[in-house]
Design a protein around this nucleic acid. Sequence first.
DNA 1: AAGTCGGGGCC
DNA 2: GGCCCAGACTT
Length: 362
Amino acid sequence: MNTSTLLTLWYKKNMRDLPWRQVKNPYVIWVSEIIMQQTRIAQGLPYFNRFIDKFPTVEHLANASIDDVLLVWQGLGYYSRARNMHQTAQTIVADYKGMFPKTAKQLQKLKGIGEYTAAAISSFCFNEKVPAIDGNVYRIISRIYDVREPVDKAKGKTLIYDLVSQLLPVQNCGDFNQALMDFGAMVCTPRQASCNICPLASQCQAKLKGTVEERPIKSKITKVRQRYFMYLLVTDGKNILIQKRDNNDIWKGLYELPLFELEKSMEVDAFLNLPEVKAGLPPKPMVLLDDFEPASHKLSHQTIHAKFLLFGSASLPKINGYKSILISNFDDYAFPKLIERYLNGRIKKIMKTKIWGSIKSL
DNA sequence: AAGTCGGGGCC
DNA sequence: GGCCCAGACTT
């Protein structure tokens, strides 16, 4: 039996029961694909359900505010996905009469829809015969054919594209593409692949040569930047200051506490004596009530070494660019995980202590 | 072509 | 600590 038939048969028996598997609604498929980019199903699933619940149609999404979209996205990461989705929803409503285009080529013109997602939507919903090549496919094809070309370079990408294109069945191409996803997630996994139950084991070149664990080959090495953040939580016991991140940096569009970024790690005392800090701090009377250093916050490309300083102030100063909100309402705003943990953890505990009550008498 | 963009799970 | 996950965009 040929490779694609074996994979399709395996899929019919073993397919995962995912909420978007029962529908051919391009909006729902689109939402699922964007949310799942670079994300494990288990992590993305609750976000998908909340997202569809909150924005059941492309019109709901188009009419929402970006802050509301980011609030649903909070904690998932890669926030440009949410910003691009919001923009594309508005494009679909304004320029496409609320209907998604049906070909991969047209879909790829939309913001946030690249080659993979365009192929996924058009093949899943409209059965277009195009390969949807994601990380699973790079891995599976690299193993079946024992590809030694790095898959993160143009030559390797083209090779994988050609190889998987030859496997595409004429009919039910969408099912075949989804079969590869599930097969990669359940059998041909990155580590400890289940070759013992693999229907392709006898024809898998990597299995025959013993190179399964070494495929696919990747050439890139990600360099991790170290960053040092000093966050200030300034409060009168009731309100806090926050700001929106609008520059071209991580967490764009999310809210955060007033921030000083430092070149290197610094003790709290030294930090407070910096001229720019003295000048930037709100006027007295203000008192340092707590300092806290969580474990370093690791992103794929940056490690954030953060410290949080809690300041009590008799009255909350008005500073340009900052917004004053009720601390009890902080979950109405989308924060990075690093901030959200601090507010929900350390600060919630402190709020129940005498220290917190004493702020009000400053 | 290389760099940037999150967070979490697993080894 | 490193790798990977239903990748795309910017430079």
